[in-house]
Structures are given as C-alpha cells and as structure tokens.
Design a protein around this nucleic acid. Structure first.
Lengths: 343, 343
DNA sequence: GTTAGCACTCACCGGCATCGAGTGCTAACA
DNA sequence: TGTTAGCACTCGATGCCGGTGAGTGCTAAC
C-alpha cells in the first residue's frame, strides 16, 4: 500500500518544503533527490500520495506540498531524531546555569535563547499553582498599611501578594503568624476553613482576627488563581520573516493570537500535560488563527511533579528534528537544576 | 509669519490625517472644514506650510501630510486637552482598583485596558531598583538546599531570588538573619561592605559566614540589576491593523523592535524620567525602527519617588488628546493607590 | 489678497498578452 | 505490469498599456 518508494518521495517533498517553502514538482524531485526513477513515475506516485491525503496541490498547475496528515506521518514514522551539535548544547546549558537562581530569569532567557537558535517563536510558562502543593508561606512587613505575602510551591514557583491592612502588625507578630499559617497549611488551603483555626492563630500570634482572615483568603486566592502564571514569549518577529506569512492578513491573525495570553495558555494546554515531547501539527491545536503553525512542547518537572512547559511555535513546515533536539536538551538541563531536591 | 489661518489649516490637515491616514488635499479641506476661503488660497497657504517644514508631500501629485515637526507644533501649541468620558474613566478605575494588591497584575491589566481602549500599543514597566531605597529584605526557607530572598523597595516593587546553599539554615536562623540584614541595609547595599558586618550577623543569627556572604551579594546584585524590571506590553496586533503598516517590511521592523525588551526599555527611558506626561514624536525617540511611531509616556510615583512608567505607542498620527487623557487618568489612579503611604 | 481656470503629474486600476512550471494522459517500451 | 517519453493543457505570475482621478502649481482676472 504505502511502499518504501512512496515514503522516500514524501520525505523528499517534506525536506524540500522545509527548506524552500515552495510547492515542489516531480521534475525537481527527480533531479535533486536521485531516487533513480523518472519524473513521470514520480508523478504517478505523487498522484497516489495526494489521493491518500498526505500531500496537497495548492492550485491546479502547481507542485505539491505536504498536508498536516503528511507531517503527522513524517514525525511519527519517518523523522529521525538528531543530536544537537555540541556548541548549541553548550549555549543552552550556559543560559540555564547562568540563571539558576531566578526562575523568571530562567524562563525568559531560555525563551530568548530558543527563539534565537531556532528562528521560530519560543514560549515558556510557569506551572499553574493549583494542583501542586504549597510548601511555605511568609508574611513580610512593608509599611504601616501593607504587608507582603509570599507563597512558595513545591515546584519552587513564587507568588507575591501585597495585602492592605488598616494597621499592619509589626514584624514580630507577622513572623509568628507566618509560622502558624505554615503549620496549618492543609486546613487553610483545604475545602472549608475551620473557624477554630483563625482563633488559634490569633491567640498564637497576637494578630487581629480580621487580618488573619485576609491572609487566609489571600493564600486561598493564590491557589485558586488558575491564570496567574507568567508566560514568556520570544521571537514573534521570526514568524513575520517567514514567506508563508507574507500575506498581511495571515500575519495579523498570528500576531493577534500571540498577543493574547489566554490563547497562549490554551495552546500550551493542548495535548495534555504528560511527560516527553509532544508535537502538535497545524490545525490539531485548538486555536483557529494558528492553522498554519505547529507547536512542539515539553513539560519539565521537579520531584516528579509538572513544573512548567516550554514550547516552540513555527510554521507547519518547521524543522522538526532540530526543534525537538533543542527542546529535549533544554528540558534536560532544567530538570537537572530543579531536580537537585535533596529535601 | 505663522498667521491664525495657517494654523487652522494645519490643524485641519492633522485632524483629518488622524482620522483617515490619507494625504489630504486643498479641495478637501475647503469642503470639509469650512474655513471660508477657497481651495486655491488654501493651496497657497499649504505651500507656505510645506516650506516651513510643517507638512510634507509624499509624492508629487498627492495631498499633504503632517511632518514630525508639524505634530510637534500641534501638541505643543494647538492641541487642547480633553477630559475622558465618564464611562471610560470608570473602566480605568475599575481595572486599577480591582488589582490593587498585585503590582504585576496591576501593570498587566492596566496595559491591557489601555491597549483595548486606545487601539494602540500599551506598555507598562516597573521602576528600576537602583536609585530607590530598599525598605526590607526577608529570607524564606524553601527546602534543605535553597532559600528564597525577598527584597522590597520603597516603591513597593518586589524581587525574588532563590539562593542555593549546601545546607540551608533553618527557619529560625533565617528569621534572625533577616532581621540583622534589615538593620544593616545601608552597609550591605553601600559601596564597600565592611568585613565586621558579616561577623556580626553570623554571631547574631548563628548562620554560616559563607551563606551570609551569599545573601549580602545577592541583595547587592538585586540593586545593581538595572535590567531586571518587568515590562508589560499589550496590543501589538493593533499596530498591524493600521493602514500605515500595511507594508510588510515596516510591520516587520516594528514587531522586531517591540519584540526586544531592551528596545522597549530604551524607548521608555527616552525623554527622561520627570513627572507629567511626555510626548515623543516620530524620530525623536532613539530607536531607529520606530520612525513612524510616537510615544506618550507618564511616570507614576509613590511617596515622591518614581515608581514606574506607563506609555502608549501609536502611529505619529495618533489621537494625542485621547491618549493623553487616558494616560493622565491612569497615572492619577495609580498614584492614588500607591500614595496612601501612611508609614 | 483672493479666486477661477487650466495644464500637468503621478499613483492606482483593470485588461491583456506572455511565460513557465507543473500536471495528467496516452502511447510506447522493457 | 511497471516505467518512461512526449505532449497538450492549466493557471499563477509578470509586465506592459491606457484610462482615471486626485491633487498641484501657475497665471490671469477680480
């Protein structure tokens, strides 16, 4: 049915299209990729491939381009993974280890490095808080009318929240209250806040009950805030440089989509949160404006729990082997850093 | 020299060009804006205006468009400031007060609201840390090998830094160390770190000297990190919708420029950091790719010190009165929140 | 000083012919 | 039966051409 020769022709079409972004004809294949058969034979095979839906003819007298289905076959069966050249891997590790102690820096610089290396769009996102556990909270005095609440999760994500208070408690009280909140984290973040806990915390710390309630609600709100994750995007300009988006309307649609945080998050959620590298081709993603784009994403983790996601967005004809190799190297590096959890 | 009639013609040209983005001819002015003189007379006046460099003829047989110099005159002398309709002001206040306790939320949502209301690009940035004073630091335990350092400035900006430590001190020690660091902030952030301070902190807290040095260096690095400010950008898509950027190359240049954090920061720095609203027209900004764009920016402040900046980026023919009105309302709202500093 | 009239310029648009890449089909060949 | 050469056909891209209309500058009259 799908003989070896057909596969090699499909591969040739895809490889050429990745390079040139132009429809490719039978004669070109025969000349450039010496498969040892004539253009006429290739024409017959291409006709079959088109019937199978693996390639498409954009208009009657043009060459063929791969369809989404064709790419799917390619990444699933044909593509061979590639190792990154050492220099590139070194750059990645340099970026990662140079930003160890700043999770936001790490994400930002990683996204930057990826977009620079691939010439596609890179996207990085922190994990959602909800679902993971809170490891620690801390109240920090700012001034007489405001207090900073710091929340740290198992995945080392940090959230800050400034609380307004009529008369903010002094540093000592805040320290005791922090301690108390940490001891009772399960209750505070749990379903129904038992009333006894408030009283207990008040007794222990000496803080106002109203203030304690504010704190408790704030901690809960942090956990509940699904959309409160930083998303880092880099390389939008690269998309505009691609020939397939020289149509201004398409370009506008893409930029609009990338301009919208919620779209990005939807995109990153698509295809689930499991481990490993996932490739989402063309219209497989849920976002309509992103038809001509593919997404390669990988989740990184800390202590077995998902800790964030990194993705590469490019045209469907993107260089999948290269992008996958880069993504794998990065996730490995980040896991290495996050993983040294000796606690 | 620059008679009243000439000014009215210039104003008509600018107003029309703001609306239509098309070169405007003498006949149109005569018909649409009944100034009471014929198109021939207007032609003569326009010829004079062009000689003065206030308007430009894009090509021989086209109408005139305002030059950067023309806009300058307009915003400096002709433009009358406008008050925002109540509904719009209400939206702004709602956004601001709905995000009081999250400085990053506040910036993000404000930028979003501004870009939605103006149909231009909105940009918001935290202040640089350096130059302002640190109000408080706090060490928070994460796990056995890492500690979170929280730094709060006078402007309520918060920075987090995860420190790696071979054996992280326990919560109690960290609390004492935090206290000590806060007492000695001036020395720690000052020019040369006196060696006695380290020993003193070690004695007081019981922490390792090596760890204390790490902490001190980290606090100093936060102060030194000029570029460590969050920049929020919203509405890039709006730029692409403008007719003047239907040329793909121009669009690419703009998106590239906006894609680059450093460009944005340069842009926001241009024109100094003083109070009030500042309008930077066309090529007056330092960034070359931004020739066709104007920036309106305003610094907001807390307790008399600069606390960040908000800007609107649009085409040179942007609706300046509207943008200025929106910006003023926002800055007022933010100052109101940040200003309630009873400490 | 203002206005009417006029010749001139030039971007824009639609129509038209040309060109070339690529296909599908048929017939011949191994 | 699979492969190949040849050929007519399709259709987007390119470039040329003339018409159209908006707008100007200049001159002469009011």
């Amino acid at each position: 049915m799908l003989g070896d020769r057909k596969l090699r022709i499909l591969e040739a079409i895809i490889n050429d299209y990745i390079l040139t972004a132009e429809p490719i004809g039978s004669r070109t294949i025969a000349k450039k990729y010496n498969i040892g058969i004539s253009s006429a034979t290739i024409r017959n095979e291409m006709s079959d491939l088109e019937e199978m839906g693996l390639i498409i003819q954009p208009h009657a007298s043009a060459g063929r381009i791969p369809s989404d289905k064709g790419y799917r076959l390619y990444v699933d069966a044909l593509m061979e993974s590639r190792d990154l050249p050492k220099e590139q891997a070194d750059i990645i590790y340099e970026v990662i280890f140079g930003n160890i102690n700043r999770i936001d820096y790490l994400m930002r610089e990683t996204a930057r490095a990826v977009s620079a290396m691939t010439n596609y769009v890179a996207i990085a996102a922190e994990p959602t808080i909800s679902g993971t556990n809170i490891r620690h909270t801390q109240l920090v005095p700012i001034d007489s009318s405001s207090v900073l609440l710091v929340v740290i999760t198992d995945a080392k994500a940090v959230r800050n929240l400034v609380l307004a208070a009529r008369d903010a408690p002094c540093a000592e009280v805040l320290a005791k209250l922090s301690e108390g909140v940490n001891e009772r984290l399960a209750e505070i973040t749990g379903a129904g806040l038992p009333p006894g806990v408030i009283a207990e915390l008040a007794a222990k710390s000496g803080a106002d009950e109203a203030f304690i309630i504010t704190v408790a609600e704030s901690v809960r709100s942090v956990v509940a805030a699904e959309d409160d994750r930083r998303v880092y995007l880099s390389g939008v300009k690269n998309i505009l440089a691609l020939p397939e988006f020289s149509d201004l309307d398409r370009a506008r649609a893409i930029v609009s989509a990338l301009d919208e945080r919620s779209t990005l998050i939807t995109l990153l959620e698509s295809g689930g949160g499991e481990v490993g590298t996932r490739i989402i081709i063309g219209s497989e993603n849920g976002v309509d404006h992103m038809r001509g784009l593919s997404l390669i994403k990988a989740n990184y983790r800390r202590g077995g729990k998902p800790a964030g996601v990194i993705g590469i967005i490019g045209p469907t004809r993107m260089d999948y082997p290269m992008a996958v190799a880069i993504l794998r190297t990065i996730v490995q590096g980040i896991n290495e850093i996050l993983g040294d959890d000796r606690g």
